Amino acid sequence: MSIVGISGSLADPSRTSVLVDLIVGQVAVGAFSKKSFVSIAGIAPSLGAALDPQSIPAEIGSAYEKLIAADVIVVGTPVYKGSYSGLLKHFFDLLDPKSLRGKVAVLAATGGSDHHSLVLEHQLRPLLSFFGVYTIPATVYVKDSDFVKEDGNYRLSNPDISARIDTIVAQTLGLIGRSNSVSSIAA
């Protein structure tokens, strides 16, 4: 099984990328043979210029291949002006709506205040539901103040977030187990 994290942040390094990488690492322990990461910051120049899904640059195609091949997707975004990042939405806009059907997703976000946490339920969950993705019930929202910057990189400094991530891990593994059971019965 494989897992991919996608960070919608336009910065590098970013708090969102640290959070997504942490979740991917925790979920992947013992359950996944392959993990990968897609950074919107890394493909931003090509992505911003891409308008036709039939002629996308190779680096975006490679990112889509990772997403399509994954069993679990961890989608993280910083919250800008009350919404997820525009290039993250553009990334999903160019993707075939049927390509993610049946996958499992974890939703995560970072932002300046608690008010932004609603993005997870009111924007990210509906976006992924459009693609036919099963989102786990728990989400994780982390405020910018829950990180510290050391040697140019961010590190999560709030230990309470670990309990939320533990819940996400349990729910993800539970849903994967159930979806595998349903798939084998249907076959």
Score class of each variant (00 low, 15 high):
Val79Ala: 06
Pro13Val: 03
Val20Met: 06
Leu127Glu: 02
Ala186His: 09
Val182Ala: 05
Val20His: 09
Glu59Pro: 01
Leu19His: 05
Val133Asn: 11
Leu120Trp: 05
Val75Ser: 10
Arg178Leu: 10
Ile165Glu: 02
Thr16Pro: 05
Asp12Met: 11
Lys103Phe: 12
Tyr80His: 04
Pro57Phe: 11
Val140Ala: 14
Ser9Glu: 01
Pro78His: 03
Pro97Thr: 14
Val72Ile: 15
Ala41Asn: 08
Ile3Met: 12
Glu121Trp: 11
Lys149Arg: 12
Ile68Arg: 15
Ala28Lys: 13
Gln54Phe: 10
Leu127Val: 11
His116Lys: 06
Phe131Arg: 05
Leu22Ser: 07
Gly86Ala: 14
His90Trp: 07
Ile40Asp: 07
Asp146Trp: 04
Ala138Cys: 01
Asp52Gly: 06
Lys81Cys: 00
Asn180Cys: 05
Ala187Tyr: 10
Asp52Ser: 11
Thr167Ser: 00
Val72Thr: 15
Ile60Gln: 12
Lys103His: 13
Ala105Thr: 08
Ser181Asn: 10
Ile43Tyr: 07
Pro13Thr: 01
Val4Trp: 13
Leu51Met: 10
Asn180Lys: 04
Asp146Ser: 04
Ser14Met: 01
His122Arg: 09
Leu95Val: 15
Ala63Glu: 08
Met1Pro: 12
Pro78Asp: 05
Leu156Thr: 02
Gly102Tyr: 09
Lys89His: 07
Asn153Arg: 12
Pro45Lys: 02
Thr139Ile: 06
Tyr64Thr: 14
Gln26Cys: 00
Val20Pro: 10
Val140Ile: 08
Val182Gly: 00
Leu47Ile: 13
Asp71Lys: 10
Ser157Asp: 04
Ala49Leu: 13
Lys89Asp: 08
Arg164Asp: 08
Ala105Val: 02
Asp166Asn: 12
Asn180His: 07
Pro78Cys: 04
Leu124Gln: 08
Ala69Thr: 13
Ala28Leu: 07
Ser83Asp: 10
Ser181Trp: 01
